[in-house]
Lab assay of single mutants.
Amino acid sequence: DNLVIALHSYEPSHDGDLGFEKGEQLRILEQSGEWWKAQSLTTGQEGFIPFNFVAKA
């Protein structure tokens, strides 16, 4: 599955970004460039995340 774990917390800075906490698990929905579309397994919310803040779970 496309699961990743957050290496750092991220505060959203643009509409459509997904904020998350360090250690949170996310499911990657789309990989494109440096911003990936993801869904939080904690909150169920979707949005874009910086790819370098996460690692394969």
Rank of each mutant, 00 (worst) to 15 (best):
G19M: 06
E46R: 08
Q45V: 08
R27A: 06
S13R: 15
A38W: 03
E24G: 02
L18F: 06
P50H: 09
E24T: 05
Y10P: 01
S13D: 09
G33H: 04
F48E: 05
A57L: 15
H8K: 14
F48C: 15
L18Y: 04
F53T: 08
I28K: 00
K56Q: 11
E30N: 08
W35S: 07
S40M: 03
W36Q: 01
I5H: 04
A6T: 07
G23F: 05
K37Y: 15
Q45T: 06
S40T: 03
I49W: 03
S13C: 15
A55D: 09
L29F: 06
K22N: 03
F20Y: 02
F51G: 14
N2G: 08
H14Y: 10
V4D: 00
L26A: 00
G16T: 09
Q31T: 11
H8Q: 14
I28Q: 00
H8A: 12
Q39G: 03
N52S: 11
W35T: 06
F20R: 01
E34K: 13
G47A: 02
A55Q: 11
S13K: 15
L3I: 15
E46Q: 12
L7F: 05
L3E: 04
W36V: 10
A6D: 00
G33I: 03
Q39M: 12
D1Y: 11
L41W: 02
G16P: 02
P12D: 02
I49F: 07
G23T: 02
Q39W: 04
L26Y: 01
G47Y: 05
S9Q: 07
L41R: 02
E21P: 02
F20C: 04
I5E: 05
L3P: 01
S40N: 10
D15L: 12
Y10W: 12
K22E: 09
G44M: 09
Q31Y: 14
N2Q: 10
Q39I: 13
E21L: 13
F51I: 12
H14T: 09
H14G: 12
Q25N: 08
V4S: 03
K56T: 12
E34R: 13
E24W: 03
D15N: 11
G44N: 07
F53L: 12
A38P: 00
T43C: 04
W35E: 05
L3A: 03
D15V: 13
I28G: 00
D17T: 10
E21S: 13
F53R: 06
Q45R: 13
H8L: 12
S40V: 03
K37D: 01
T42H: 11
T42Y: 08
R27M: 10
I49T: 00
Q39Y: 09
F51A: 15
F53K: 07
Q31H: 10
K37P: 02
F51N: 14
F53N: 04
K56H: 12
G33R: 04
H8N: 08
D17E: 15
A55P: 03
D17K: 09
E24K: 01
G33V: 03
L3K: 04
S9W: 06
T42C: 10
S32K: 13
L18N: 01
W36L: 10
K22H: 05
G16L: 08
W36R: 04
H14V: 09
H8V: 13
L41F: 04
S9A: 11
D17C: 15
Y10R: 07
G44S: 05
L3N: 04
L41T: 07
S13M: 15
F48Q: 06
H8W: 13
P50L: 06
D17A: 14
L41V: 11
I28F: 00
I5C: 08
K56Y: 13
S32L: 12
L3D: 04
I28E: 00
L18W: 05
L29H: 02
N2H: 12
T42Q: 10
S32F: 13
E34L: 13
F20H: 00
E30T: 10
L18H: 02
N2A: 08
G16Q: 08
A6I: 03
K22P: 04
W35Y: 11
I49S: 00
H14C: 15
Q45A: 12
A57S: 11
S9R: 13
D17G: 13
R27G: 00
E30L: 08
D1V: 10
T43M: 02
A38Q: 01
A6K: 01
N52M: 08
Q45C: 10
I28N: 00
Q45G: 07
G23V: 01
G47R: 00
S40P: 00
F20G: 00
K56L: 13
A57K: 09
L26H: 00
N52F: 10
L29D: 02
L26C: 04
T43N: 07
F20M: 05
E11K: 14
G33N: 05
Q45S: 08
E46D: 06
S32H: 14
Q31F: 12
A38I: 07
E24N: 03
R27K: 10
L3Q: 05
G33T: 04
F48K: 10
E24Y: 02
I49G: 01
L18E: 00
A57Q: 11
F51T: 07
G47Q: 00
P50W: 10
L18K: 03
L29A: 02
S40Y: 02
F20W: 02
L3W: 09
F51E: 11
A57I: 15
K37F: 15
Y10M: 04
L7D: 02
R27V: 10
V54L: 06
I5N: 03
G44C: 11
L41M: 11
Q31P: 05
G44F: 08
E21Q: 14
E24M: 04
T42G: 07
L41A: 05
E46W: 10
H14K: 14
I49D: 05
I28W: 01
G33A: 04
N2F: 15
P50D: 09
A57P: 12
E34M: 13
G33L: 03
E46H: 08
N2E: 10
Q25E: 09
L18G: 02
T43H: 02
G19H: 08
K22G: 04
A55K: 09
D1N: 11
S9Y: 07
S9G: 09
G47I: 03
G44Y: 07
E34Q: 12
N52P: 05
G19Y: 06
I49M: 01
H14R: 15
I5P: 00
R27F: 08
F53W: 10
A55E: 14
E11Y: 14
L7T: 08
P12A: 12
E46A: 09
G44A: 05
N2V: 12
Y10Q: 03
N2D: 11
D17M: 14
E34A: 13
A38S: 01
W36H: 02
F20D: 00
G16S: 09
A38E: 01
D1F: 12
F48I: 07
K37G: 02
V54S: 01
D1G: 10
D15Y: 10
P12L: 03
P12H: 04
E30D: 12
D15C: 14
K56G: 11
Q31M: 13
T43E: 02
D17V: 09
K22M: 09
E34P: 12
G19N: 05
N52R: 09
W35H: 07
D17H: 15
A57T: 12
E21A: 13
Y10H: 06
P12R: 07
L41K: 03
D1R: 09
H8G: 06
H8R: 15
W36K: 00
K37R: 14
N2M: 14
L7H: 06
F53D: 07
E34C: 15
E24S: 04
V4M: 12
F48W: 15
V54N: 04
V4T: 04
D17P: 03
Q45F: 09
E11S: 13
G19E: 04
I5Q: 04
F51M: 14
K22C: 10
V4Y: 15
A55I: 13
S32M: 13
K22R: 09
Q45L: 13
T43S: 10
G23C: 07
V4F: 15
D15Q: 12
T42D: 08
V54M: 04
S32A: 11
G44K: 07
Q31I: 09
G44T: 03
Q45M: 11
F53I: 07
L7Q: 08
E11W: 14
R27C: 08
P50V: 05
H8T: 10
H14N: 12
F20A: 01
R27L: 14
P50S: 05
